[in-house]
């Protein structure tokens, strides 16, 4: 677990300069698609903490995306705040709402929690659609400004993409640190066996709320970046199906693995854009692919790779055992069970 996290840090630091340079040849549409992938990866990273590490089923991540997007849109267009301030405020707001929504999670688990968060998502959507004075209703909010930082205008597609990349890196590093810290292990303990965790002195109440709130704050942060990325928001992208797709993103990528959200977001948000050439059928293809992934490997794509790797190392161990068997003679039965224990 810990060794794997260290490897994650290495991959993260190698990927960053590649992603920095890679899209410089892309047209603005291509840049938009890659930017969208980054933004949705952030939202999925948050949900991955809540669902994948702490084991709390949330169908509210789409709503937090919406809360962050609307908060940022309102603060930057109506109140004239700069984006960094609006970003912090949006994340903080989502964190606070996440704590409140976390309270039901203290009482109910599993599918019941999914139902409560589902209700929350629909209510947030209704508020966005109906409270015209605040959210613009179905007409939405237009002309959301892109930021100007330290005197340089980041409005064009490439500089804005690079800003998103930096923010994604910072948030990914923060997540990495969080998972490596005792908190991360407490979240895992919560998922694996809440009662045992409590008996070992983990404050279940506090960690449940924290898992929810931090996951939500990531959702809000993603929303806050989504608003200036698309420059116009209305309630539609934050409907219940958005939360379904985010959940599918995390599960298809691999819930509880560090890069699962990035892989999943590639599938859910970039693949549909790449499949656009197929006309109206791309969403069907996408849904069918995700359905297949979930059916073949409930631990997601990364889980599939892991299973394949385990399988291979087991096969290798078996081969080694077979080679050693004649020399070991009667003791082979013993090594067999030991070998199995070590590879699992």
């Amino acid at each position: 677990m810990i060794r794997r996290l260290d490897a994650s840090l290495l991959i993260l630091l190698v990927a960053f300069p590649i992603l920095w340079l890679l899209p410089s040849g892309l047209k603005s549409y291509g840049l938009y698609v890659v930017s969208l992938w980054l933004v949705m990866s952030i939202a999925a990273m948050g949900l991955n903490l809540t669902l994948g590490y702490a084991g709390l089923t949330s169908l509210a991540q789409g709503a937090f995306l919406g809360i962050g997007a609307y908060a940022t849109a309102i603060l930057t267009t109506k109140a004239g705040w700069p984006l960094p301030a609006a970003f912090l405020a949006s994340s903080a707001l989502s964190f606070a709402v996440g704590v409140l929504l976390g309270f039901p999670a203290l009482r109910v688990k599993h599918h019941y929690l999914a139902f409560v968060t589902l209700a929350f998502t629909v209510v947030v959507f209704l508020v966005a659609r109906n409270e015209q004075w605040l959210t613009g209703g179905v007409f939405g909010i237009a002309n959301i400004p892109r930021p100007v930082l330290f005197g340089s205008d980041l409005g064009a597609a490439l500089p804005f993409y690079r800003l998103l990349l930096c923010v994604t890196l910072v948030l990914a590093l923060a997540m990495w640190w969080l998972l490596k810290s005792p908190w991360g292990r407490a979240f895992l303990a919560l998922r694996e066996n809440a009662v045992r965790a409590a008996s070992l002195g983990v404050d279940i109440r506090a960690y449940t709320l924290l898992a929810f709130a931090i996951g939500s704050a990531y959702g809000g942060a993603a929303g806050s970046l989504y608003a200036p990325l698309v420059e116009f928001i209305d309630p539609a992208p934050f409907a219940l199906s958005a939360s379904f797709v985010l959940l599918l993103t995390v599960v298809a990528g691999g819930a509880g693995s560090f890069f699962g959200p990035f892989v999943g977001a590639f599938f859910s948000y970039m693949l549909p854009e790449l499949l656009r050439a197929t006309g109206g059928w791309y969403l069907i293809i996408y849904a069918a692919v995700v359905l297949l992934i979930v059916m073949i490997s409930p631990t997601g794509l990364l889980g599939l790779i892991e299973r394949w790797r385990d399988h291979r190392s087991q096969a290798k161990a078996a081969a080694a055992r077979a080679a050693a068997a004649p020399t070991l003679g009667a003791a082979s039965g013993e090594t067999d069970s030991l070998g199995k224990g070590a590879t699992q």
């Binding site: 379904f244 959940l247 599918l248 969403l283 069907i284 849904a287 069918a288 359905l291 979930v294 409930p298």
Partner: peptide, 9 residues
């Protein structure tokens, strides 16, 4: 979750 994917499909 699989039924969610089915619903989208």
């Amino acid at each position: 979750i699989a039924t969610m994917a089915l619903s989208v499909l």
